[in-house]
Every structure is written in C-alpha cells, then in structure tokens.
Amino acid sequence: MNTIQMKAFGKVNLGLDVVRRRADGYHEVRMIMQTVQLFDKVSIEKRSKAGIRIKTNLPFLPVNANNIAYKAAKMLMDEFGIQAGVAIDIEKHIPVAAGMAGGSTDGAAVLYGINRLFNLGLSKRQLMERGVKLGADVPYCILRGTVLSEGIGEILTPVKALPDCHILIAKPPVSVSTKYVYEHLKLDDSIRHPDIDGMVAALKNGDLSGVTSRMGNVLESVTAVKHPEIEAIKQTMIREGALGALMSGSGPTVFGIFDDKEKGKQAREILKQGTLARQVYLVRPYNIRPYHK
C-alpha cells in the first residue's frame, strides 16, 4: 500500500458541562460527543524523498509544523524511525475554528493512516494514547460514535447511539478561540449545568426527545454573549421545528436536531438565505465505530 484515503468526520456536543477548574489550569468536563456525517477528505501518499508535505484547499490554513496533521505524522515517523516521506492532502469541509473538532479529526486520520501505510501495528488504544498528546479531542476522533467524555476529555466511554435523526449545522461568520472561552468561563451559581446522566439514560432508552430536552452547553455563557448571532440561529432552528438547538464545543457553530427531514431542509434554506450563517449543512449522525479495533 502506497496511498490511503480517509474520511475524517466532525462532531457536535449533545451536552457539555464543565465540572471544575483544576489547579494545573485544565478544566474537567463531562460531555456527550456525537460524530456527524460531515467530513474532511484526507489522503496520505508515501514518498521516496524524506519529509512531510501538507496541501489543503484552504489557503489560510498552515501547511507546516503548526498543522496538527503535520504534528501527527511527525510523531509516529519520529517514534518509529521512518525514513521515507509522506504527502498529505486535506480537503476541508468541516468548518474551521468552529467547535466541531475539524483539526483534531484530521490529526486522528493521519495517525490512523501512517499506522496503516507503514504497518506499525498500533492498536486503537495505542493510537488514542498518542493522540491525546496532540489535542484533547483527538482520541475521541479515533474512537468516534456516541461517547461520554470525562476528565479533560481523555476518559471516553461509548454509550448507546443517538437515534437516527437529521442534524442541521450552521456556522456564523466568526471564529472563536477555545483558549479564550475557557479563560473567561465563570463557574458560579448562574451557570445552568446540563443533565449529562439523564442524557445517557435517554440514549440508552432510544428516547430522542429525552436527549434534546436535556441538551446544554455551559460554554454558551461566554461565546453566545460575545456573539449574539449564536442565539439567533438557535431560535431560528427551534422556530422551524428543531427538537433542540445548541452551540457545539466552544462554538460558534450551532446545530439543531430534527425528527422531520423536511423541517430540517426548510430551516436550512432559511439560514442559507439570511446573514446569520455562512456555512449550513443538513446531515445525520454517524455511528460507525472506530477506524479499526
């Protein structure tokens, strides 16, 4: 095998709670992560010339050591003494800096791809252990599916899959720094914490409305205040029939869950015609488990 092509799927957070800020500055979280059928295309080709070459369809993305895909390739190539080079092509479709793990999922795909191309024999668990060194979301992007995430995001427990539905994704024309959001998060009595345990129970029972009625994201207390278009997009989705709508991750992407495809399509067209969102997609959950066992 000299070339491998992969789909690197994005995610949304059905629920995101921050439990506390630790003494080391990291935040402990409890989240329900859900892979969605919106993906980047990542291909890796072996080259006889040493080195790592990155290409992408977005001119503003770094194609050097600042790209997480580059870091992922270098990590494994250094560890295993790989002398050959690789050419990595990334066709981006997941919104950038949007709370959907677009960079992390590309990094996860590269870890998997290098492992396969060079027959390194790393297991899923071993890839996840390396992935957390690149970013907290990378292990999840290797695991994929519907997952309870705890700790700083590295403790992952698969839960029963989200019932089939239609997920409308809309990214307003702003970008958000995750670092900024966490630095400005105030965990005081005004914060409404989502019912993560209740959401897990609803998933176990296949209760879609039980999931959507419990959706919540404490980071909205920072991002949505700074960017009021987030709340406006949520209200548009609810008005058009979404069972629930929420900001994903640190934002600014908003998603709405619909049990009626036509209502989802109508909401998509309304958002496309307006000025609130620049990128709008109607997708479904993606519940195929990890790249490999």
Results as ranks from 00 to 15, higher is better:
138 V>L: 11
97 A>L: 02
128 M>H: 01
144 R>P: 04
106 D>W: 06
160 K>W: 09
121 G>L: 08
158 P>A: 12
100 M>P: 05
138 V>N: 13
125 R>E: 14
135 G>M: 14
140 Y>W: 04
99 G>R: 00
179 K>W: 12
121 G>P: 11
131 G>Q: 10
111 L>C: 02
102 G>D: 08
116 R>F: 07
141 C>M: 01
152 I>E: 15
163 P>G: 05
178 T>R: 03
125 R>T: 04
171 K>T: 02
98 A>D: 03
154 E>L: 06
137 D>W: 11
125 R>A: 12
119 N>Y: 11
146 T>Y: 11
102 G>T: 09
162 L>P: 00
154 E>W: 11
104 S>W: 03
101 A>D: 04
101 A>V: 05
112 Y>M: 09
166 H>A: 12
153 G>V: 04
155 I>A: 14
143 L>E: 14
115 N>P: 13
162 L>G: 00
158 P>H: 01
162 L>C: 06
102 G>F: 10
159 V>P: 07
178 T>Y: 05
166 H>N: 15
120 L>H: 09
157 T>H: 15
169 I>C: 09
146 T>H: 06
132 V>Y: 05
104 S>Y: 02
143 L>S: 03
138 V>D: 14
172 P>V: 03
179 K>F: 14
107 G>N: 07
155 I>K: 14
166 H>Q: 13
123 S>G: 13
149 S>D: 06
168 L>T: 12
129 E>F: 03
120 L>M: 09
164 D>R: 09
149 S>T: 05
115 N>I: 01
163 P>S: 06
125 R>Q: 11
110 V>K: 03
156 L>P: 02
168 L>V: 09
170 A>H: 01
175 S>Y: 05
138 V>C: 13
151 G>S: 06
157 T>W: 13
108 A>K: 01
111 L>I: 02
180 Y>E: 15
167 I>R: 11
103 G>S: 13
120 L>R: 07
149 S>F: 11
126 Q>V: 06
160 K>D: 15
167 I>M: 12
157 T>P: 04
167 I>K: 11
130 R>A: 00
99 G>E: 01
180 Y>H: 15
114 I>H: 05
107 G>Y: 01
167 I>L: 05
155 I>F: 13
130 R>C: 00
150 E>W: 14
146 T>C: 11
181 V>K: 05
100 M>V: 13
98 A>C: 07
162 L>Q: 04
103 G>T: 15
129 E>H: 02
121 G>C: 07
166 H>F: 15
112 Y>R: 09
143 L>T: 06
161 A>F: 00
148 L>T: 06
110 V>C: 12
114 I>A: 03
120 L>V: 09
113 G>L: 04
177 S>F: 13
163 P>T: 06
156 L>M: 07
126 Q>D: 07
127 L>S: 01
131 G>M: 10
103 G>W: 12
150 E>V: 11
139 P>C: 07
173 P>C: 08
144 R>N: 06
105 T>A: 10
111 L>N: 00
133 K>Q: 15
176 V>A: 07
180 Y>M: 15
140 Y>C: 02
170 A>G: 05
170 A>D: 04
114 I>F: 01
176 V>R: 10
121 G>A: 08
180 Y>I: 14
118 F>T: 01
109 A>M: 10
144 R>H: 12
169 I>Q: 02
127 L>W: 00
127 L>H: 02
180 Y>R: 15
110 V>I: 15
147 V>S: 08
110 V>E: 13
175 S>A: 13
